[in-house]
Simulated scan of single mutants.
Amino acid sequence: MSDLAAKRGAVPAAKKALFLVFHIGDERFALRATEVAEVLPRLPLKPIAHAPLWVAGIFAHRGALVPVIDLSALTFGQPAQARTSTRLVLVNYQPEPWVAARWLGLILEQATDTLRCDLSEFKPYGLDNREAPYLGLVREDAAGLMQWIGVNELLTEPVRALLFSAELSL
């Protein structure tokens, strides 16, 4: 705390974080803004043969091929609706600390709002959902529940091998 704040008797600010808020159907979810590299409009994608249905495809961006997953299809089995607020969000995907971060595209519905809140407002929700380890802590507010998505837990090892095979062979 600075001397000026101490003299005024100020309490240190709580650890606030910025989140990108989006929807899957009627449910709200959040991504930590520090994991978001860029928010783009929905773009045409090249499909990937024999990939799971929730793998939407790939696209070229700034000299890199970026795999894209449809988070709605992954989570609830229904593809994201084509709305004007549906975005392609590039996230920094780094499943292991010793592996360099890569871009991963996420198709997200109604990805137009942000929220700044204290990290401690997100709490465990009491379920051990081993099939969806990316579904994290939950925050309650006047609009209901919002769930934090863990970017680095989105892909299983076989899907990671499919989407990032070039790096695995280096």
Score class of each variant (00 low, 15 high):
M1Y: 13
A5T: 10
A5C: 14
K7A: 15
G9M: 11
A10M: 15
A13D: 13
A14N: 13
K15G: 07
K15W: 06
K16P: 00
L18D: 12
L20N: 04
I24K: 08
E27L: 13
R28V: 04
A30R: 07
A30M: 07
R32K: 12
T34L: 13
V39M: 07
L40F: 01
L40E: 09
R42H: 06
L43A: 13
P44I: 05
L45I: 05
P47N: 08
I48P: 06
I48D: 02
I48Y: 04
A49V: 14
H50C: 03
A51N: 06
W54R: 02
A60G: 11
A60W: 03
R62F: 03
R62I: 01
G63Q: 02
L65H: 05
P67G: 01
P67V: 02
I69Y: 07
I69R: 00
L71S: 08
A73D: 11
A73E: 12
A73K: 07
T75V: 10
T75Y: 09
T75E: 10
T75N: 14
G77M: 08
G77Y: 10
G77F: 10
Q78R: 11
A80M: 10
Q81I: 10
S85G: 06
T86G: 11
L88H: 01
L88K: 00
V89K: 01
V91W: 06
N92D: 13
Y93F: 13
Q94A: 11
Q94K: 13
P95I: 01
W98K: 10
V99R: 14
A101T: 08
L104Y: 08
L104A: 04
G105S: 04
G105M: 00
G105N: 02
L106W: 06
I107L: 09
I107W: 00
A111T: 06
T112V: 15
R116M: 11
D118F: 05
D118E: 14
S120Q: 14
S120C: 01
F122T: 03
F122N: 05
P124C: 02
P124G: 02
G126Q: 07
L127H: 12
L127K: 14
L127P: 00
R130L: 15
R130A: 15
E131M: 08
E131S: 14
A132T: 11
P133W: 03
Y134N: 10
Y134T: 06
Y134P: 08
L135A: 07
V138F: 04
R139C: 04
R139L: 09
E140K: 12
A142K: 10
A143T: 13
A143R: 13
L145R: 12
Q147R: 15
Q147W: 06
W148A: 07
I149P: 10
G150F: 01
V151F: 08
N152L: 02
T156V: 00
E157R: 11
E157I: 07
P158D: 07
F164E: 04
F164L: 04
E167L: 04
L168D: 11
S169F: 01
S169P: 00
L170R: 12
L170I: 00
